[in-house]
Amino acid sequence: MTEFPQLDGFRGAPGVVRLIGHRGARGVMPENTMEGFAFTLKIGVRAMEFDVVMTRDRIPVITHNHHLLNAATRDAEGNWLTGPEPKVSKLTLAELRQFDVGGLDGRTVYGRRFPDQAFMTGLRIPRLADLLEFARRPEGSGLLLLLEMKSEPAAPGAKGDRLSIVHEVVREVRDAGLQERTILHSFDWSVLEECARVAPEMPRSYLSQLPENTDDPGEDSQKSVAPDFDALGVSIPRAVARAGGRMWCPYFKDVTADLVAEAHGLGLLVAAWTANEPEDIEAMIDAGVDGIITDYPGRAQRILLSRGLRW
């Protein structure tokens, strides 16, 4: 047993590379939905990486962008959203639950990125509390939570608003008694500083993406809330270790075997995001990462099996 038992489910070992379902299994199931999480756990992938933002009535909900993505959202009549995308922080939970997030509009750039995703009807954006409740039930008892707190770029002086998500998230995880199955995770390292202050019993995972790598279509960027990596004065793994992090989650295109070895030498776990193509999954295995965050956990399973590896 380690100081943080939840880290064991993300720790690689000889013959073992951990798989982490990205937003559940976005490549084949509607992302960040209870249906997607249940599917991913059922195929034997225990760890989930997912995103939390706040509604107007201060309820943590699981969705990636700060705005509802038109390409992935239908209204109560089943029509795709058009025009300006509604901002989650301007909607109450009740208003948010009017929308259906069970499919993708295949005519859009975002929809074309995931042609194999199942199309379902009647799926709602879940509360964080919904996933925590599922994790407490027998069918969810193996679930491990890599909980990303999204930070919206704010006007100067609004840092307190960005940090308030930490307190709500920590309260809900503690109320559910799931601290030992949760890792707190963010691109915004100031959010993680607040996590260290208010939730020392939960380890922290530091996300990074070098600025030269472009963001994927339809994705809110977190580059503006991340540190200036050039100004750190040390490598990113060393900066994570100095901050007290226990896991480093780099963008897969930023991963090298030397950086992975450096991180391991500093006592960090390394989980790369989001490797989907077979050659990229293979490259992460070869680089020696502990874990691979992927939209296609089934695809990654088959690659691991072909190499005599487990997850």
Rank of each mutant, 00 (worst) to 15 (best):
L305D: 06
G244V: 09
M48I: 15
D228W: 07
S224Y: 10
A38E: 14
L145N: 13
E95W: 00
S151N: 15
G111N: 02
F187V: 09
G160I: 02
F39M: 12
D116C: 06
E77R: 10
T63H: 14
M284F: 00
G244W: 09
A176H: 11
G244I: 06
L68F: 00
P211K: 06
N213M: 13
D280Q: 14
V101F: 06
L128D: 15
P217T: 05
R302Y: 10
G265H: 02
F229T: 07
W189V: 01
E282S: 07
E194Q: 12
A300I: 04
A13E: 15
D51R: 05
L147N: 03
L68N: 02
E212H: 11
A25Q: 05
T82A: 05
A287N: 07
R310K: 11
K159M: 13
L131D: 14
E212V: 05
L268V: 02
M284N: 03
H264T: 08
R46G: 02
A176P: 10
V53S: 02
M34F: 04
E212N: 11
D254L: 00
V225R: 09
P250K: 01
K223L: 15
P60A: 07
G83Q: 08
E201Y: 00
L207D: 09
V166F: 04
R204S: 03
L192A: 03
P200H: 12
E85K: 06
G245L: 02
V191F: 05
H167C: 12
W311S: 10
A239Q: 14
S306I: 05
A76Y: 06
M149G: 08
R204K: 11
I236L: 05
T294Y: 03
G122C: 03
K87W: 05
W248S: 01
G298Q: 08
F50P: 03
P30C: 12
P211E: 04
G44N: 07
N276S: 11
G233V: 05
E3R: 00
H185C: 12
L309V: 02
G83R: 09
R246S: 05
H264Y: 08
A94T: 06
S224A: 13
H167T: 15
G111L: 02
C195R: 12
E49M: 04
D116H: 11
L123M: 14
P138H: 04
Q222P: 02
A243I: 13
W273I: 11
A94L: 09
M34R: 04
C249P: 01
D295S: 03
S151D: 13
G177N: 09
P14H: 03
W189N: 01
R23P: 12
R181T: 01
H66Y: 12
T214H: 10
E212Y: 08
T55C: 00
D290I: 01
T33K: 08
D57W: 01
S235I: 10
F10H: 12
R162P: 00
R112C: 06
P86F: 00
V225L: 14
I292D: 03
A155M: 14
A287Y: 04
F187R: 09
T33M: 04
E148H: 07
A283N: 11
H185V: 07
G9C: 10
D230T: 04
I236C: 05
E172N: 06
M48S: 13
H22Y: 09
L19T: 11
M1H: 09
R299K: 13
S205N: 04
G111T: 01
Y251R: 00
A199H: 10
